[in-house]
Design a binder for these strands. Structure first.
Lengths: 362, 362
DNA sequence: CCCGTTTACAGGTACGTTTCTGCAAGGTCA
DNA sequence: TGACCTTGCAGAAACGTACCTGTAAACGGG
């Protein structure tokens, strides 16, 4: 035992370890651990004493050591899709911010913290952080990150229905097709004869499902599709595409924009062409932003309820981390909410906001 | 040595450990570690061989063990102020989202990941995660979290000049006073005779500095202050306050709004009172949102350059974590940018829309 | 008074790395 | 040929915690 010679290195480092607490309290390491974690059989006197000494020394247990020992880190990954260098998506900016906020809140309420990680890892940041599970947003078809995580046995919950046979633990999504059909019916009811779509060139599930729902609706009602697609990650391209759409010879008398900024872009384009909203042009866009309540005129929006999605995703993930293993994937569909405002009310341009109408659910 | 009896537990768990790699490659643990980390003196043949075996086994080093051993986790905390249950601030929503995005990006580029943590910890999430340092946003006067972090010897960099004698390692901020003075001068030059302010009731540094700069400017030019304050975290209160401001008998002919949604709120209020912008009312607000480029009319905004702030904060923090200890606090002031649009141009109300801001940033 | 049981703790091992130290084998030079 | 250096690797000690396994002392019943 060369222990006697080493001069008690605990006090060297600034931080006090569990050993220092044990020595100061005159008990063993085990007793300190049990006292602080509420385990073992200790009289309350000892427990209090240990706790008090620990407080006095400013003892903070090492998260790394605890994680190594217990196998649980209390950390949840949140993947963000990246366009070029920047993480997060541009198009779903408010959506993502709201969703992340709800997810953070829900995670913290259950004692977990969120780690923001890029869907594509340049450096291997992924293996540098011990995760208990991961939330992925809109995973692509054969996402290598997801596969790797699943292979490691980590639970993965996705926001957005996984494309292909991606083996996620659970997923949460809206019924995008129903939402689009609901909007198109709403516009038709308001008197629209030719409904246009502002969509994206990207191949993500949201864009794809929404666009194909639009096309099927057109086919059903016998309308020629009128749509413009643009790279949704480019903030400038949206305004240009909105302009193109209204400049067409077969100009639509109603437009649904799939992305958050489309509302202002379409409104500005309509002004340039002298089109009055909603008299000459009905407008709806998918957005979580509050600005559309105060525009002139206020614009009808479809909310994907990111708060509920963020909360649900985290709850499912933590359940999978802690709880019973339900080996079959859990799927959860969150209803969307159409906030009807003046921009889509042709007949009676009231200024009051209609109560939110939720489309039928699947 | 009871080693011989224990039946090689490495293969039990799903994940392969460094021991399994060593055994499979026919070398020692040391050699595996050295080979994978580029340390030690090993011939390239050995290095390649080990790497290949590790790949074949799908070996991922345990982040917890590495952190425990090295003392570095590669994790940076990002504190968000909370109002009630929800993290993030409402008022600086776009600001925070942009800032967090830039911070995430900068951190990832240097091999670090961001952990979102609440400024107030209900559960002790803080001690459950091993941090190398922390970014705090707008720390309050005697922030207990910051004090505790500093006491632990962790570097802390704040977005926003620390109030009081908060011992942060470094901070980054705008020159809010100069920004406000610049805006007021700009409005006065455009012909404003009585400039109003839409401000907040909160006591944070941004609100306080901006308001007192306004008051001093009023004193200097001999104008009676005309301002309304509201709880900035309440999204509805802003519209009400904007209305109050324009309903006053001493109605201002120009208004600066300190918070992001103030632009749309003021514009809507102006419409209700039949005030034309910019003819009857000049408008400026502090915002990072792109919608103000497409409103009718486009609104002049002050950008606090959150991208640059987020990047700078992270760079300073990582420098402090890794680099030379510059024992004196590093202070960095980021210039603001006034994006002049129609709403503050009295003389020449052009109808051209300013070009949208391009994603690349200085 | 003795034995079984509970109480209150201590010892020691394992979690999976990194890294310091050691140690043969082979080469170089006087 | 012996002293000495370099190369190529292995052994083993930490890092700080949690928990399993002991084990004395106190206690109660017969």
């Amino acid at each position: 035992m060369s222990r006697a010679e080493t001069p008690r290195r605990g006090s060297r480092s600034g931080r006090a370890g569990i050993r220092d607490v044990a020595a100061a309290a005159g008990v063993s390491i085990t007793t300190v651990s049990d006292a602080l974690n509420g385990k073992g059989r200790l009289p309350d006197a000892t427990r209090r004493h240990v706790r008090e000494v620990a407080d006095r020394l400013g003892y903070r247990p090492s998260a790394a050591a605890r994680t190594l020992r217990t196998g649980k880190s209390g950390l949840i990954g949140l993947t963000v899709t990246t366009y070029g260098d920047e993480p997060f998506t541009f198009t779903e900016f408010a959506y993502f911010a709201e969703m992340a906020r709800a997810a953070t809140s829900a995670a913290l309420a259950r004692g977990y913290a969120l780690v923001i990680l890029p869907a594509t890892s340049r450096h291997d940041v992924w293996s540098n952080v011990a995760l208990d599970g991961t939330v992925v947003i809109d995973p692509s078809d054969q996402d290598p990150v997801v596969s790797e995580l699943v292979r490691q046995g980590l639970p993965v919950v996705s926001d957005g229905r996984p494309a292909g046979a991606l083996p996620v633990t659970a997923w949460v999504d809206n019924d995008h097709e129903a939402a689009v059909l609901g909007i198109l019916d709403h516009l038709a009811e308001a008197g629209a004869r030719r409904i246009g779509l502002l969509t994206g060139t990207t191949t993500d599930t949201y864009t794809h499902l929404s666009t194909s729902a639009y096309l099927r609706w057109c086919e059903r009602v016998g309308q020629d599709p009128v749509y413009e697609a643009y790279p949704a990650h480019d903030p400038c391209a949206g305004a240009v595409a909105a302009d193109r759409l209204l400049a067409r010879p077969d100009r639509p008398d109603a437009v649904y924009g799939l992305f958050d900024p489309n509302g202002t872009d379409l409104l500005a384009a309509a002004r340039r062409y002298g089109l009055r909203v909603p008299d000459d042009l009905l407008l709806v866009c998918c957005s979580e932003s509050a600005v559309y309540a105060a525009t002139e005129p206020p614009i009808t929006t479809l909310s994907l309820k990111p708060r509920r999605i963020g909360t649900a995703v985290v709850q499912l993930l933590i359940d999978a981390i802690e709880g019973v293993e339900s080996d079959q994937p859990v799927e959860q569909v969150i209803p969307t909410e159409l906030v009807v405002r003046t921009s889509s009310e042709r007949r009676s341009p009231r200024t009051t906001v209609s109560p939110p109408r939720s489309p039928e659910e699947g």
